[in-house]
Each structure stands twice: as C-alpha cells, then as structure tokens.
Simulated assay, not measured.
Amino acid sequence: MGTSAQEEMNKFWAKNTRLNRPMSPHISIYRWSVPMAMSITHRGTGVALSGGISVFAVAALVLPGSFPHYLDLIHSLSFGPALITLSKFALSFPVAYHTFNGIRHLVWDAGKGLKIPEVYGSGYTVIALTLLTSLALTAL
C-alpha cells in the first residue's frame, strides 16, 4: 500500500530539516546579474505604467472639469524647475525602458540573441538607450 500525501510531505520536510536546507530558494542565495535586475525592472515598469494609465483614465472619467482646467491648476502650483525636471524624467524613464526592453523581448521571441554574451550586450544597450532617451525627453 502506498503512502499518503501527508506522509510524503512530512518525509520531505523532515529530510530538508535534517539537511538544514532553506524552505525554498531565497533571493539572498542568488548572485544579482544584469538580466535578473532587468527582468524585475521590466515587470515593475509594466505594473507602474498600467497602473498610471488606469488611474489617469479613471480620473478623467470621474473628476469634474476638463483636462485644461487641471493643467492650469498644476501650472498655478509653481513647482520649481528641479521638481519639474525630476518629474519629467520619472515619467519618461519607465516608458523608454519598458519600450526598449519590450523590443528586446520580441527579438528573443524570434529566437535571436539568446546566448549569454548577447543577453548581456542587449541589456547594456537597453540601459544606454533608455538613459539617452529619458534625458532627451526630459530636456524637451
């Protein structure tokens, strides 16, 4: 007669405890790499962009007044040039990064650039293009 799922699970945890293994691979055991950081950043920028667009869309639907009214309200707050520049960079960076890294993923989906040196090279290219594009958009 076979063992139950509960007995198998108990054997599994007893063995892992006896061997002093962690419960699961934890982020502290991994060595950070460019592809890993870029993957996390790609997901984060995707969530931020979709969340930002959703908030903007809901606000446009439910708030009274028109867009020019709220634009004038923001202009009347008289933010300093440093805050405006920082805001422009904060808006342009996720858009540029997610766009360039998305193109990189499309190239991977075509089966190209999957060797480790190519992955790192395309990663550094995405970072450079993102910074240049973000700075150019910020300067507008």
Rank of each mutant, 00 (worst) to 15 (best):
I103C: 14
T3D: 13
L86D: 02
A96Y: 09
L135N: 04
F56V: 08
A14P: 01
Q6A: 15
S24F: 14
K112N: 02
T17C: 03
S33F: 05
T133F: 13
G46V: 03
I127P: 07
I74F: 14
L19M: 08
A5I: 10
Y70F: 11
A59Y: 05
H105F: 10
V58K: 04
H26C: 06
E8R: 15
S54G: 11
I29V: 12
G52T: 02
T133P: 08
F56I: 10
R18S: 12
P68H: 09
L114T: 15
K11L: 12
I103M: 13
L71F: 11
I40P: 00
L137N: 06
N16D: 07
S28D: 08
S33P: 04
G80Q: 08
P25A: 05
T3Y: 04
W32P: 14
A136G: 03
F67T: 10
L61V: 08
Y30W: 11
V34E: 02
P64M: 01
A110L: 15
R31F: 10
H98D: 07
I29K: 07
E8S: 14
T133A: 14
L137K: 05
L71G: 00
L49R: 06
L137S: 01
G44F: 00
K11R: 15
A90H: 03
F67W: 06
N20I: 00
I103L: 15
L19I: 01
N101P: 02
Q6E: 15
L49Q: 04
L86T: 07
D109I: 04
H42A: 09
S76H: 12
H75G: 00
V55T: 11
F93R: 05
L137I: 12
G113W: 09
H42K: 02
L129Q: 07
S122N: 09
N20Y: 03
N20G: 03
N20D: 06
N101A: 08
P81Q: 14
V62N: 02
T125F: 15
F67V: 12
G80Y: 03
Y30P: 01
I40W: 05
V107K: 07
L63N: 11
I29T: 13
S78D: 14
L19T: 04
S28H: 06
S24K: 13
G111C: 06
L83Q: 09
F100M: 03
Y97L: 08
Q6F: 10
H98N: 15
P81E: 13
G65L: 05
L137P: 00
I53T: 13
G46E: 03
F56G: 01
A128I: 09
W108G: 13
G102A: 08
A37S: 12
M23R: 13
H105Q: 14
N20R: 14
F56H: 11
I27R: 08
A57V: 09
D109Q: 12
L61H: 08
P25Q: 08
H26T: 13
K15H: 10
I53L: 15
M9K: 13
P94V: 02
G123N: 07
T3A: 10
V107N: 00
K88G: 00
Y120R: 08
Y97D: 10
Y120D: 07
P94W: 02
